[in-house]
């Protein structure tokens, strides 16, 4: 088993990790992660539960900082800036790197205010009505809600709520959008809508998506990283990347036995 992985060949990378080890206290959650994330692409993280996919995702916008025992070894570069350098302000990072969560989490405010929240924080001076409309259109939600922008975001259906959260993330015009199993709480039709949306969004943004749905990874992503998990002698389960390649390669001609077994549904 190779621990040092070849990165998928890319020309322009947004994120680059070097020998990244992620810890919660003494517990090593993810080890030896060295990957490049390509610009204007969709990169999917797949793998069994507990293998650290979400943990890795949350390193890219420093959301793990909220957990006290969290720390890393190694480097994460964002456009060649060291993301964890002491002079980096995590709040600034999160303004560049937006996030959509597993469970739709609109604020208990109107649809309009949900979208306007981020831009207002940033002191957006332009036409807020137009920005709200644009963001909702980008999230393919405008036609559903254009007549009820004052309605509560929490009153929408699950699929609409998740698209509202995507619109909210898009409204601050980030560089990257992280998605942590964005469709796991949605029905198949809403899921397809979100997937179609991803294809449009990648024109403007770089997208990282964690998913348990392998069809989703194969349908929607350009690159796929397959994570697996290994227990050490003390029973601590550490995740690592088995294989990271173009999505077709992962699903049609995986190099590793474990990847082959996982994508064909024989394990995991």
């Amino acid at each position: 088993m190779t621990s040092r992985l070849q990165s998928a060949r890319q020309t322009d990378s947004i994120f680059r990790t070097e020998d990244l080890n992620i810890y919660y206290g003494n517990f090593l959650a993810v080890r030896d992660l060295s990957i490049d994330i390509a610009k204007n692409s969709i990169t999917a993280f797949i793998g069994p539960s507990g293998c650290g996919k979400s943990t890795v995702l949350r390193c890219f916008n420093r959301l793990n900082d909220l957990i006290k025992s969290f720390h890393i070894e190694g480097k994460i570069y964002y456009h060649d800036q060291d993301l964890y350098a002491s002079e980096v302000d995590p709040v600034e990072v999160r303004r560049q790197v937006g996030m959509v969560f597993q469970k739709p989490n609109p604020f208990p405010k109107s649809i309009y205010d949900n979208i306007a929240f981020g831009p207002r924080l940033l002191g957006y001076k332009g036409d807020m009505d137009e920005l709200v409309e644009q963001s909702l259109k980008q999230a393919a939600l405008w036609d559903d809600v254009k007549d009820k922008l004052k309605a509560f975001g929490t009153d929408l259906s699950g699929g609409q709520q998740q698209r509202l959260c995507i619109a909210r993330a898009v409204a601050v015009q980030p560089d990257v959008i992280l998605m942590d199993e964005p469709c796991s709480a949605l029905d198949p039709i809403s899921t397809l809508k979100v997937e179609d949306l991803l294809q449009e969004l990648k024109e403007k943004y770089t997208i990282l998506i964690v998913t348990h749905n392998m069809q989703q990874a194969s349908r929607a992503s350009d690159y796929t990283a397959f994570f697996n998990v290994e227990a050490n002698s003390k029973g601590q389960r550490t995740g690592y990347v088995v294989e990271y390649e173009r999505t077709e390669a992962i699903f049609q001609s995986p190099k590793q036995q474990a990847t082959q077994e996982y994508v064909s549904g024989r394990f995991g």
């Binding site: 709040v91 999160r94 969560f101 981020g118 924080l121 959260c165």
Partner: peptide, 18 residues
């Protein structure tokens, strides 16, 4: 208040005070 709201807000680049 659900933690989801805090994470969503922090994820959008809000400070803890905001």
């Amino acid at each position: 208040v659900p933690n989801d709201f805090r994470q969503a807000s922090i994820g959008l680049g809000a400070t803890r005070l905001q």
